[in-house]
Design a protein around this nucleic acid. Structure first.
Lengths: 187, 187
DNA sequence: TAATATATTGAACACATTGTTCAAAAGGAG
DNA sequence: CTCCTTTTGAACAATGTGTTCAATATATTA
């Protein structure tokens, strides 16, 4: 990829994240992104069809990174040792949120985040399908995709509750709450 | 309230609901609402500051009605007999959704519904706080508001999953799923 | 009914945002 | 150096927003 393209793309991403820190997704205009990124108007539209596509692209980069981590493809995470459960992927995700090394938190914290949340759930669903085993009883009571959906949704809701309350609880506490909610559902 | 005001207000509400049936909330313009309602531009802004305030007003009317029903203040519901559980409020809500006698479903089905969903959860939280008793164990493990939030969120997520899948399951089935998810959490 | 108060109307307004187009300029690759 | 691609900024039409105003229509009350 052309060095110029990389530079532009990354400038737009940075500007976008910067703005998300200050105001709601829905209230950010393309003009503002352009100004913050210091990039020509035509250039923005060369790279992204609309603002929604920009978000989508950002999400894809983000989740690719996080899911790679969860699958252990990148072993440089010091908190790996704290994964005690069979499906420690959730602890792992919480650590990501705590460390704020990616921009998950900013995106989750901003209002008008429903587009982002839906991407988040989509990707969580994939992860849950691959990595989580259900308790025996529940498995026969209802469709598998419904359970998968519930687990992902519960995770997102738990995180959102945590964020809204100012993140006062430790991640360990929150992971504990999370698994308690899913007692009898996750094996 | 002036007869003219009532008429205008109701025309705007009707137009709004009509449009929600056809397209996403986020893509409906005030202009369209005005045209559909056959009302002057200035009149719309006389009644509602913005489109978001219109949605808020609609939600308030909607939930007032539904919560009144759930509290038994209006006894003309034939499906009251089907409430078998201590907290039959959820069955009751599902029946509302099934019958589609209010516009809950339309609002939940449209995309860009995050504003509406947040109002929905807010009102559900109130209801859960008043009407639902928790299982003994869980009560000591985590904060009450966290549990309340989980119950409301689970209900919304269950309904959303049902809607997205085309509402193939019966409401009884869905209520069964819902309570199964909350086994050990609700008394 | 008549007088008074209030609501509606539609046009015009300034302003913001969107997404496109184009020719000139700048930057990379070979 | 030369060719190819990207960036640039200005200009554009189209759409939407929220306000203002004077004329008109409709309630309310006496």
């Amino acid at each position: 990829m052309d060095r110029r393209q990389k530079k532009t793309r990354s400038a737009i991403f940075s500007a976008f994240i910067e703005l998300l820190d200050k105001k709601d997704y829905g209230k950010i205009s393309v003009q503002e992104i352009i100004d913050e990124a210091d990039v020509g108007r035509a250039t923005f539209y060369m790279h992204f069809e609309t603002k929604d596509f920009l978000l989508k692209a950002l999400c894809e980069e983000l989740f690719e990174h996080i899911l790679d981590c969860s699958n252990g493809k990148s072993g440089n995470h010091s908190h790996y040792s704290s994964c005690k459960r069979q499906c420690g992927a959730f602890s792992h995700l919480f650590e990501h949120l705590k460390e704020n090394d990616d921009n998950l938190l900013k995106l989750l914290s901003s209002r008008n985040n429903e587009l982002f949340v839906s991407y988040f759930k989509e990707n969580l669903n994939k992860m849950v399908e691959e990595q989580v085993e259900f308790a025996n009883k529940i498995d026969k009571l209802m469709p598998k995709e419904f359970i998968v959906n519930h687990i992902s949704a519960t995770f997102v809701d738990t995180v959102m509750w945590w964020i809204k309350g100012g993140k006062k609880e430790s991640t360990d506490t929150m992971v504990g709450y999370f698994y308690a909610l899913l007692d009898g559902i996750i094996k």
